[in-house]
């Protein structure tokens, strides 16, 4: 079995299992290409990730390993326990998403770059959760956005969206 090493932008290496790595579509396709060209091999696959910092990478890998474990549990458990398991997974994900907005931003970027659809879904949903119920000014404040619309433009957009507010 080939080892996979993900290298963060500060040079830190993380060894992960093929099963967990397969959740990252980017890594999975690299692996596929490699096997297609070189055949079965035990040389470790080193994937440099110049866009991902060590701490974000750790967080992403934590997600991959945990989801892999949940997947195995799901296939092994009888139907009656599925609902219970789903609750467990949701609780874990909720805990996992207790991060700052800045960390969340980096997680989305990493999930996008590594192409981990499930993590991307989870993170974008968490971002949406931080937006819900906020006014335009509050959205700007929450994400540190500089005002790029003139007051007139903002008013125009607000007016054209009045129908959506009911």
């Amino acid at each position: 079995m080939r080892n996979i090493v993900l290298r963060a932008n500060d040079g830190a290496d993380h060894v992960i299992s093929v099963a967990a790595a397969s959740l990252c579509k980017t890594v999975a396709s690299l692996l596929q290409d490699l096997e297609a060209s070189k055949g079965e091999d035990t040389d470790p696959l080193i994937v440099p990730l110049p866009n991902v910092c060590n701490c974000t990478l750790q967080k992403v890998l934590g997600f991959c390993e945990q989801q892999r474990a949940f997947d195995e549990l799901c296939t092994a458990s009888p139907a009656a326990q599925q609902a219970d398991l789903t609750r467990q997974i949701q609780a874990w994900q909720m805990e996992y998403m207790q991060v700052s907005t800045d960390e969340l931003y980096h997680l989305v970027m990493a999930a996008h770059y590594l192409n981990v659809p499930r993590l991307l879904d989870l993170c974008t949903d968490a971002m949406a959760e931080r937006i819900r119920g906020k006014s335009p000014a509050q959205v700007r404040e929450c994400f540190g956005l500089k005002p790029s619309l003139s007051p007139e433009e903002e008013e125009e957009i607000r007016r054209s969206n009045l129908w959506a507010l009911n």
Binding site: A128, R132, G133, A164
Partner: peptide, 28 residues
């Protein structure tokens, strides 16, 4: 938020109600 790739921002918007989408639209 505005530095995110368009695809990601769209994903965020997909999770939102039309009321919240309207608030985002007026934010930047």
């Amino acid at each position: 938020l505005s530095d995110l790739p368009d695809g990601c921002t769209q994903l965020v918007l997909e999770f939102l109600s039309i009321r919240d989408v309207a608030a985002c639209a007026a934010s930047c």
